[in-house]
Nucleic acid binder design. Structure first.
Lengths: 136, 136
DNA sequence: CTTGACTCTATACTTGGGTACAAGGTCGAT
DNA sequence: ATCGACCTTGTACCCAAGTATAGAGTCAAG
């Protein structure tokens, strides 16, 4: 398969395939006499794996780690588990952070004790010094 | 106050202050004869507001919108409320997305039905084609 | 009047993950 | 043999939100 077909079947851009190769996510394919890359069929599966992992929030670097571990073949399971766990941890942290933000904004929009004229008071009040132009 | 003092008190980098000015978040301060920027005291409060809003997940563009609305003085409340609501919506969407990722990874790490040897099977199984090198 | 800390502008670099050319070479169907 | 569709490399650009550096000017204390 040539790169265009691989890209089409994996539903990514041709440039993206070459990018992944440069980043070491895809191993370098064979070349025809003309210089064209020639891919085995499973290249599509491989790229799909990358996209899948990305959709789970893994960065390309993390994905490369997973792939490299697998290539090495040894200490695979504990390490892959560790990568997955640390990603899980990062996701949990991010969720907590977003929930905190959510609360603050929600509070600002609804229960902040300001009269109805101050629906966005959480933000407005931060301009304390300049009451003359205040939204009141 | 000169820029260094403002930056120190607002706990940001000097470059950041200049960046915010260029982006229209801070109005241009007066200049001394030498060309040095000369800030009023409330510049610190203003920058703190920007950092605060950023910590709530607003982008600098959104913050600029809030500031611009406020400058204009009219249609302020409904618009600020709208900005806050859309940010809230974006945060909620992001939380939901992360929770979906979390579930998928958590499932892969714990209940996927694979024996203990496949703790990261969610990822490993995506390499279906290449069983010879599999972690089994 | 020199020294060191500060400031000025302009430009480039960073991270992450791509996307978009440009200028050339190749494939295959007609 | 020619045409369009494909491929090659290299480079540059995009987003956000800064950070870094260079080269020059300024301020204030000793």
């Amino acid at each position: 398969m040539r790169i265009g077909q691989v890209a089409a079947q994996a539903e990514v851009n041709v440039q993206t395939v070459r990018l992944y190769e440069r980043l070491g996510l895809l191993k370098k394919p064979g070349r025809r006499a003309s210089g064209y890359r020639e891919y085995p069929d499973d290249a599509v599966t491989f790229i799909r794996f990358i996209r899948q992992a990305k959709s789970l929030g893994f960065t390309l670097n993390e994905i490369k780690s997973l792939i490299d571990m697998r290539e090495k073949g040894s200490h695979t399971m504990a390490d892959m588990r560790a990568v997955a766990k640390s990603r899980l941890q990062a996701i949990d942290d991010k969720i907590r952070q977003l929930q905190t933000m959510r609360e603050a904004i929600h509070h600002g929009l609804t229960h902040c004790g300001c009269p109805e004229q101050f629906p966005a008071c959480v933000f407005v009040r931060l301009f304390e010094k300049d009451e003359s132009k205040s939204v009141s």
